[in-house]
Design a protein around this nucleic acid. Structure first.
Lengths: 136, 136
DNA sequence: CCAAACGTTCCCCTACGCTGGAAGAACGCT
DNA sequence: AGCGTTCTTCCAGCGTAGGGGAACGTTTGG
């Protein structure tokens, strides 16, 4: 099948498919005599797998590393498991950071309510934010 | 003072200062006869304010919007408060998304432990991920 | 037989917050 | 006078996941 059909079947754009090919996430397909990309059903499977993995929160780089090992004939369950747990750890760290930022902002919000706007005249600063500096 | 001293005093690089100027976060300073940027103490205050606000989790665009209104002579407490609460909402959304991704990955991790790697032979897929497709 | 719809490659653009380097001018100290 | 450091501008890129559009070739239906 040609690129448009593959795209429709998998719910992506042709741009995305060419992009995946450019980063070696999809292998280069055969070409027709006139140079059109010519895909088989395996490409549908692989592309759907990529979208599934992506919707699970894996990055394209992580998906690529799974597929690379797969195509080298390895049993990748343990590799996948390791990769997934690494990714979970990274997400936990992001969540921690976001919660810290959230806490910081909540304090600012409270302070903003309690301060008198008319005492706020310095053009370079803002007392809402400034007041929180010492304890940060 | 020249750009290097300002940078040292505020703990940033000269690159960062020029970058802030290029996005209008810092206003263009006076120049010496030979074309060097020449800053006063107000620049130190403003730059430190920017770093404080940034460490509170605000983006440079948000900081710019506070500073813009300030320099227009407005009392910005209410604006700052609104901006902060918007940012908190955005962070909450990010956290929600990350937790969803985390849950998804936890399921994958559990599945990876329970599956038999030797049954995993398709070069285009990975049963750990594939098995979760239906309920996603 | 021709126009529409599809395909190709190519390069630039997005947002974010910078960092690095090159080429040249100016400053500071000996 | 000369050497090293600091300054100037501009250009380029990182990483993520593609999107937009130009300029051109191919396929397909009426």
């Amino acid at each position: 099948m040609r690129i448009g059909e593959l795209a429709d079947r998998c719910g992506v754009t042709t741009k995305t498919i060419r992009f995946y090919e450019s980063i070696d996430l999809l292998s280069e397909p055969n070409r027709t005599a006139s140079g059109y990309r010519d895909y088989d059903d395996g490409a549908v499977q692989r592309l759907q797998f990529i979208r599934d993995a992506q919707s699970s929160g894996l990055t394209l780089a992580e998906i690529a590393s799974v597929l690379e090992l797969k195509s080298a004939g390895q049993r990748t369950c343990s590799h996948t498991a390791q990769l997934v747990s690494q990714h979970i750890a990274a997400i936990d760290q992001q969540i921690t950071q976001l919660i810290a930022a959230r806490d910081e902002l909540s304090e600012l919000a409270q302070r903003a309510e309690s301060l008198d706007p008319s005492s706020c005249t310095d053009p370079n600063r803002c007392q809402v934010i400034e007041a929180g500096r010492s304890h940060t």
